[in-house]
């Protein structure tokens, strides 16, 4: 009798100790229901999670799953894998690495899609539908209930493209060693390219600038600036915000344009200059810190 009592006490203690861990790992429907009031605010549109249920079931659930964990029925067949919304980690953000994206960021991703993945651009949605879906996406993660999004990085207005700026951008490309993964010609064939893994330990390719693909998080000059200053969380692409000054960042954007296949003013200037790929054997140039 006493042993049974001890056992049941032990059992209860174990349950009490394990319960918080279990709830950490596994959210239940009750957790989601508690956050069904989640809203999003994008420009003058307010999104409501509960209004997105029909669209999510019809368009999203096949990949992202009814728990938002990216384990929908298509999960085994798609690569890159669908995002796990419960973690609150997103590639395309205007906010610093390690912070939540803004509602606008999430809406932009839905509208833009993610090139070279199974996520198409959802241009069939109205702004209201996207706002509702953003709120629904957020309701899957406890983080959106307790954390605020990061403060978006400041992007100064774009300067005029000049030969000097393109040459300076080439120096930045060399100094921060973009070529380690992206290669000196931007062909995603740098020395580290073949071993890259995402946060789930799956192989992932660096962006190839030369084959006409769209960068995953947008292809405007502002998008390129934002991509390397915030990094793409969940992937090997880090944030360079601490190591590239805002003015230099524009130089780098202009240099990246020279690597891309689309005709551009930058490409024409680079051709005139006879600009060569960076020399990786040149001695490293510290950024003046040491």
């Amino acid at each position: 009798m006493r042993i049974t009592l001890h056992k049941s006490l032990l059992c209860m203690a174990a349950v009490v100790m394990v319960f918080p861990l279990a709830s950490l790992a596994q959210q239940t429907k009750a957790d989601f229901d508690a956050r069904i009031g989640m809203e999003s605010h994008i420009a003058n549109v307010t999104g409501h999670a509960k209004n997105a249920q029909y669209d999510y079931r019809r368009y999203c659930v096949g990949c992202h799953g009814d728990r938002g964990d990216g384990m929908g029925e298509n999960f085994p067949w798609v690569d890159p894998k669908p995002r796990d919304f419960q973690l609150g980690i997103f590639k395309c953000r205007s906010t610093p690495t390690g912070t939540l994206p803004t509602d606008q960021d999430l809406s932009d991703t839905i509208g833009r899609g993610l090139d070279r993945s199974n996520m198409p651009p959802w241009n069939i949605f109205t702004e209201q539908q996207k706002a509702d879906l953003v709120a629904w996406v957020k309701h899957f993660s406890p983080r959106f209930a307790t954390e605020k999004p990061g403060t978006p990085i400041q992007i100064p207005s774009e300067p005029e493209v000049t030969a000097d700026r393109i040459k300076a951008g080439r120096e930045v490309f060399s100094r921060v060693q973009c070529w380690k993964c992206h290669g000196v010609t931007g062909e995603a064939n740098g020395p580290s390219a073949s071993t890259l893994q995402d946060d789930l330990g799956r192989p992932i390719a660096a962006f190839n600038f030369t084959e006409g693909s769209r960068p995953k998080c947008g292809s405007s000059d502002q998008d390129l600036y934002r991509i390397f200053m915030t990094g793409l969380d969940g992937t090997p692409m880090p944030s360079f915000a601490d190591n590239i000054k805002p003015d230099e960042a524009w130089d780098l954007v202009f240099y990246l344009r020279t690597l891309m296949s689309e005709p551009s003013k930058e490409k024409a200037i680079a051709k005139q200059l006879g600009l060569k790929p960076v020399d990786t054997n040149a001695p490293a140039q510290p950024s003046g810190q040491q």
């Binding site: 950490l24 390690g98 912070t99 969380d233 190591n243 140039q285």
Partner: peptide, 19 residues
């Protein structure tokens, strides 16, 4: 880290001479 614990993953570059 596992973001569910409250520790949020981040990823920062440190080129030569980085602060």
């Amino acid at each position: 880290p596992n973001p569910m614990t409250g520790n949020i993953p981040w990823n920062q570059s440190q080129p030569p001479g980085a602060p």
